[in-house]
């Protein structure tokens, strides 16, 4: 028996909107720790790892570890039917091949339930090795989204270079080139507006903007984004989900030939 009640149902709606275009089908894993997902895109270039900790749910009942295969497009369709203020409850009986999403309006005057068929998904669970990152960049998530969007109108790839001076996002395309430099800026009114560069070593990596733009669909989940870079290993783009966990995107770099 599984029953997860999330008062801030909009979080789950936002999570689905941020991953449904990157991954088609995925297994949601439910354990005492929380509700989690790990899935790669079909080309094995990007991976998404989600954790919503059990403490973040108003009610969390998961009698035994369960893995539920879902089509994320269909799940997003169902969650779109929940209001932004609705409380969302996920329910599944042992051995059932369906999951039920229950939406309650905040005043309890409207209750809806949507039942979705589960699917069998063969997915490999990948071990993500602990990595030491050369540079960790924390910046407003809306600023990062703006940069990725702007640069993708000029080129297909971005070079992210971190130096003592700051972080530089560069692209080139048929019509020209573009460079955006963000300097460390911690003298702001609100901490979430700061740009912080933790930089033990300079690093420069190239990534496909198409994927980074896809990751920025998670922007509504968090005011800030944390980007961890190290030479020749995947970048991690992390959006923290307040009091609940995180959504992390891993992206393999482009390699010079």
């Amino acid at each position: 028996m599984l029953e997860l009640r999330l008062v801030q149902g909009s979080l789950l709606k936002k999570v689905l909107e941020s991953i449904k275009d990157l991954v088609n089908d995925a297994n949601f894993d439910c354990s005492a720790t929380g509700f989690s997902l790990q899935a790669m895109d079909s080309s094995h270039v990007a991976l998404v790892a989600l954790l919503l900790r059990s403490e973040g749910f108003e009610h969390y009942r998961c009698d035994r570890n369960i893995s539920m295969g879902m089509n994320l497009g269909n799940m997003a369709k169902m969650l779109k039917c929940a209001g932004n203020d609705d409380i969302i409850t996920l329910k599944a009986d042992d051995g059932s091949d369906t999951v039920t999403f229950m939406f309650e309006s905040p005043t309890q005057d409207k209750i809806a339930d949507f039942e979705m068929r589960l699917m069998d998904i063969d997915s490999e669970h990948l071990g993500i090795p602990e990595a030491e990152y050369h540079a960790i960049l924390i910046m407003p998530s809306a600023e990062f989204a703006r940069i990725c969007k702007d640069l993708s109108s000029i080129g297909d790839t971005v070079v992210i270079s971190v130096t003592k001076e700051g972080v530089k996002f560069s692209t080139r395309g048929d019509i020209g080139t573009a460079n955006v430099v963000c300097r460390q800026n911690t003298t702001v009114d609100k901490p979430e507006e700061a740009t912080v560069i933790e930089m033990p070593e300079p690093v420069s990596l190239t990534f496909a903007l198409r994927y980074l733009n896809s990751f920025t669909k998670a922007t509504p989940l968090s005011n800030t984004v944390t980007i961890s870079l190290s030479s020749e290993i995947p970048v991690v783009v992390e959006y923290k989900i307040a009091e609940m966990g995180y959504i992390r995107f891993y992206l393999a770099p482009k390699i010079e030939e």
């Binding site: 270039v45 990007a46 990948l126 071990g127 993500i128 090795p129 790839t157 393999a252 482009k254 390699i255």
Partner: peptide, 14 residues
């Protein structure tokens, strides 16, 4: 020119 790498060589099956 640059080539897109994949995640397979970075992450192991667990």
């Amino acid at each position: 020119s640059s080539r897109q790498s994949t995640l397979d060589k970075f992450f192991q099956n667990s």
